[in-house]
Write a protein that binds this DNA or RNA. Sequence first.
DNA 1: CCCTAATCGAGACGGTACGTCCAGTCTTGCA
DNA 2: TGCAAGACTGGACGTACCGTCTCGATTAGGG
Lengths: 190, 190, 190, 190
Amino acid sequence: MVEGIGRGRPRSESARAAVLHAVDDLLVEVGYASLTMKGIAERAGVGRQTVYRWWSNKAEVLYEASVLDAQHELAVPLSGDARTDVEVYLNALIAFLTRSHAGAAYRALVGEAQHDPDVAVLLASRDILGESATAVVDAARAASGTALSAEQAIALLIGPPFFRILSGHDADDIDPKALADQFMRVLDRP
Amino acid sequence: MVEGIGRGRPRSESARAAVLHAVDDLLVEVGYASLTMKGIAERAGVGRQTVYRWWSNKAEVLYEASVLDAQHELAVPLSGDARTDVEVYLNALIAFLTRSHAGAAYRALVGEAQHDPDVAVLLASRDILGESATAVVDAARAASGTALSAEQAIALLIGPPFFRILSGHDADDIDPKALADQFMRVLDRP
Amino acid sequence: MVEGIGRGRPRSESARAAVLHAVDDLLVEVGYASLTMKGIAERAGVGRQTVYRWWSNKAEVLYEASVLDAQHELAVPLSGDARTDVEVYLNALIAFLTRSHAGAAYRALVGEAQHDPDVAVLLASRDILGESATAVVDAARAASGTALSAEQAIALLIGPPFFRILSGHDADDIDPKALADQFMRVLDRP
Amino acid sequence: MVEGIGRGRPRSESARAAVLHAVDDLLVEVGYASLTMKGIAERAGVGRQTVYRWWSNKAEVLYEASVLDAQHELAVPLSGDARTDVEVYLNALIAFLTRSHAGAAYRALVGEAQHDPDVAVLLASRDILGESATAVVDAARAASGTALSAEQAIALLIGPPFFRILSGHDADDIDPKALADQFMRVLDRP
DNA sequence: CCCTAATCGAGACGGTACGTCCAGTCTTGCA
DNA sequence: TGCAAGACTGGACGTACCGTCTCGATTAGGG
């Protein structure tokens, strides 16, 4: 990647970091609804235009600020036993969606995507949740010899808790063990 | 009309109807993101105070204007054959979430609920999707003798397409027949 | 003047007064160059839109805030002796242009008018300086039987000090007595 | 002062010329109000810093680009007849202030000087208008034997049209012949 | 023939005012 | 006294320009 001939002052990496850091902080302090581009810039000690220069809206900043954390929180080590791994993953997923800051950011983005096409495109460009489940799901599929595609299996695994949490049910009512059972049952038969 | 001693001008039912109508129209014309209380009042030919008097935010107006009507779109007649009914329901659900105006309103509300606690409460107070699935799910549960609770079964049925659609996947990639198969398979075993 | 049927909340006279007062204060405190619509609104404790609703730019606010003061400062009582009145007027004019706050506002407006057509129109709509000189000049013209028109005489009276002050000469070098002499001399001959 | 030993890259004379040329062009194209340092630099194909290095504000650039050239427009040849020369000069002055690009620049600077002390100093450092009138006025003074000082006579000559034009009167209403008459009349008597 | 130094174009930087928009409240006259 | 109309304060929006700051590249001496 060449990036032209590199004329002009180069982008300030410290400004970039300050913005992402400010978003992380503000998300916790004031919540997504009260997160403003103005507030982010001021908190980061950065000009407003600098934020707009590199991210076109607050969804993009939030995405970049949160996506790495999300991947980290949803990464589960494979034990070799598919049933166990699925349950461990489900626990991580539920914790992410209900208790994690990065998860709150992710839910906010999903929310925004429902009425902002730009955010929808941004979100669709990288299926964070789906990616996180891939390893676990592939292992389970391989072990079971199911005919389900990876995509189908992923939706089957993530969908039920995703639906209950985003539509406002009490997260405590979700039983990861039972969900894991149901998931394995679908896979276990041709 | 009696309404107690009724001093002063009585409440205008026509104003209420005009507001709900205006919201329906505007949702189609400008979309949720550009829906404003000001715009609603002007379109309805109603004072802004009148809107605020009856609904405390645009989510409430939208909820009353669109989402309750949504029940009709998701009501499927029971045929007696659980497998068939499940598939018919899934088709209705997918159409609702991807192509219906009421569905767009519902998705917008789910989105708003992710960063506005008031909207979350409003949405949780009435599980529209869950309710719509109850009849189909109960019939399927009765026919199969599964141990799954109604709530578990509902999440299992709705979750997968809900996740795929809200996280921005292409709706055409969803196969209702396969989803119905998977759902029946979980139920079919004790 | 009927002003329609007067529906809606009427303009707040207190907001109007607060804005004009704020402009007066700020002009003294920070000067014209640092006078901003934002600053005016904040100082007046008024919404920004309220300022824009009634005045389309800062020149208009300034004009309204200063014109009355200007008229007051430039009003000289007629003594009956034209020569004396002319000299008194010239002293008032020089004081206005060099030492008065309203005069500073007026000079700023004249300045702005040189590169903003809107301000030029505003200024031309009401010739504050010319009006102030009318009484004195008319009296002098009547006494002398000159053939000069009012407009010519006014320009002859105001022009010389106006030019010296606006083009940056030291105001102390201006001799009102000599200027009055010169003015009377032009008038005194057919 | 020797200016050091002159190490380093010397100033680019072509850059200087490009900037002055760009200012001339832009003044005509977009007007003084829309003239920005950024715009000047871009139009000149020059770095912003380069402009700031040699001129500290846009008034200085404008002064050097336009106003100094203005002297040519105001230079009138002396015929020997004072009355005629005065009228010719007045015509040139009025044309300069109302129709010339350099005149527009000069008026803009006078305007700016009313609220920017730096510009006021710049303008006062060289009385362009006064200088232009010196020859004509001195000739007229010599011919008439008046007691008026050069400064007084200059203000008397330039002031009236200057006032009318800068305060927004219609330039067509100005009668150079009458102004010349009035001017000569003041001079003609002790 | 490099070395040093000051210039050049380009463009990002932190700031700040712009004029617009909307939220939610308040104040009129009319019915 | 409820209603429409519409003005109110407040504050975020995204843009523009300010004057400064880094870049790499260029262009002159001086050693």
